[in-house]
Design a protein around this nucleic acid. Structure first.
Length: 484
DNA sequence: CTATGGCACGGATT
DNA sequence: AATCCGTGCCATAG
């Protein structure tokens, strides 16, 4: 049925239709949902029938799983099943068995800060604050200079700086700084302001020393070169060590992480725990060699279609009325077909990925095999850009609970990075990048020394000479991420 | 002299 | 056409 639907679809495509299809494919599930909800709202010809059907055979179902289609067909072919239920929990799966999950609305960092500084701002300053907050990256750093912001907002530089100062002192202190150093310095000031309020406070010389270290010797601080710093500042080494400990315990160079800290503590990965997956991959049976079950999530439970009653009424009304409503019906059919097409492509894509990257899905990062979008496009007989759109911005939930971006299936170097991590973890004495490169060569992985250095940095592993000094710490672990 | 990071180039990928 | 990635070269710190 999917095939015939697709062919029918292709025959009626115009250029405009094609563009629509692609834009649907590119939408992650959350955006598809809002899109569909507004379409349903605006288009009277479109309706959502709250009745579940098996996407494979079209049979009506009491719940989402059609036994015939979900049954293992063969152990090598992954089974594909299009889920009709909504992982976001906006609708119950079924009357009795579906307890709708809580809608997770993690508070946005920018809103959180805006609420804090809002009262202190004039109506003219508020848009500036919003603009600045929109320019922060994942680590909480401002990505452009106040001067640039002033130009864009057509505001006096002094005003921008005033707003910025307020933001930087709001709750994750140091947010919107431009560098880690600046963030630390701001946090230090905040801490000094707070100190009189009865917290265990270090001496003021400690503050002064800490500030000097951060401002003038940040690089050396990161490398734990305390002796050198002590020498330059003409203070005892122990004082520098004490200051470093103070900094590590009370400040964080990445202010945004203090904010997300609680939320992503469980999912050790890249904070993806809060993201609703577009696809779920699980094991259909307990057998490790059994088939994989793939669910491509649809954002709404039910069956999207053109309202047949609407069509019937339309057929009987006057010519002018029909002229008026025809485009609406046309759009409704287009929407349904776009959704079908999106599902179709996603299913085929995920089936191929699952077959190709089975080891990675069931195993770990080291088992990822090289895979390019181009190869997938060829195998599926679609254009490369189609795959790119399908992959971009979407996430898959793996059987072991990790939620990873689809792009990870195409990561060329993940398995090598994993080997690097493994080598460093098991090393007896710190290996230099050259030695690591050689060790990888012995395993048949040919990489340049320079590349090892890059991977090492990505992994947050310090250089060999520093590891000799401080042991195996991650870069950001050098500053213990402790909330103030 | 060795280890490493920065810059930038070329080729692959999207 | 734009972007990403691995790598070579060179400067710098130890």
């Amino acid at each position: 049925m999917f095939v015939s639907a697709t062919q029918d679809f292709r025959q009626h495509q115009t250029t405009a239709h094609l563009a629509q299809t692609m834009s649907f494919l590119a939408l992650p599930i959350a955006e598809l949902e809002t899109k569909l909800l507004t379409e349903l709202d605006e288009n009277p010809a479109l309706e959502l029938v709250e009745e579940l059907r098996c996407p494979g055979c079209g049979k009506r179902l009491a719940h989402g799983l059609c036994p015939t289609c979900a049954a293992p067909r063969g152990d090598d072919a992954p089974v594909v099943y299009l889920s009709q239920h909504d992982p976001l929990g906006f609708r119950a799966l079924d009357g009795d068995e579906g307890e709708p999950r809580e809608i997770k609305t993690p508070e946005r960092l920018d809103e959180y800060i805006l609420r804090q500084v809002g009262p202190a701002l004039s109506s003219a300053e508020r848009p500036i604050a919003a603009y600045l907050l929109a320019q922060i990256d994942d680590n909480g750093f401002l990505t452009e200079s106040p001067a640039e912001a002033a130009v864009f907002q057509r505001a006096p530089l002094a005003t921008v700086e005033r707003v910025l100062a307020l933001i930087q002192r709001a709750d994750p202190p140091g947010i919107c700084a431009r560098t880690p150093e600046a963030a630390l310095l701001i946090q230090l000031e905040c801490l000094a302001d707070d100190a009189p309020r009865g917290r265990q406070l270090p001496t003021s010389t400690m503050f002064i020393l800490a500030r000097a270290i951060i401002r003038d010797h940040f690089e050396r601080l990161a490398k734990c070169e305390y002796t050198r710093i002590a020498h330059r500042l003409h203070v005892p080494r122990t004082a520098v060590e004490a200051a470093a400990r103070f900094i590590q315990r009370n400040l964080t160079p990445y202010p945004a992480r203090a904010f997300w800290g609680e939320g992503k503590a469980g999912g050790n990965d890249d904070g993806a725990a809060l993201i609703a997956p577009d696809v779920n991959i699980s094991m259909l049976t307990q057998r490790p060699d059994g088939p994989l079950l793939i669910e491509v999530f649809a954002p709404l439970a039910g069956w999207l279609r053109v309202n047949p009653e609407f069509k019937a009424v339309l057929a009987e009304c006057s010519e002018t009325e029909r002229e008026k409503w025809a485009p609406v019906v046309e759009r409704a059919t287009l929407i349904t077909k776009c959704v079908q097409q999106r599902n179709h492509t996603m299913r085929r894509l995920m089936a191929l990925i699952a077959a190709e990257q089975r080891d990675f899905i069931l195993g770990g990062d080291g088992d990822l095999r090289p895979l390019t979008r181009a190869r997938v496009a060829k195998a599926l007989g679609v254009h490369e850009s189609t795959i790119s759109r399908a992959v971009a911005g979407k996430f898959a939930a793996l059987p072991n609970g990790r939620i990873v971006p689809l792009a990870r299936f195409f990561d060329r170097s993940l398995s090598v990075r994993d080997r690097v991590r493994c080598l460093v973890e098991t090393e007896t004495r710190p290996m230099t990048d050259d030695e690591i490169a050689a060790a990888l060569g012995d395993e048949g992985i040919r990489v340049a020394r320079r590349t090892v250095a890059k991977y090492r940095n990505m992994l947050g592993i310090l250089p060999a000479n520093v590891r000799a000094r401080v042991g195996r710490l991650r870069v950001d672990a050098v500053y213990q991420l402790a909330p103030i």
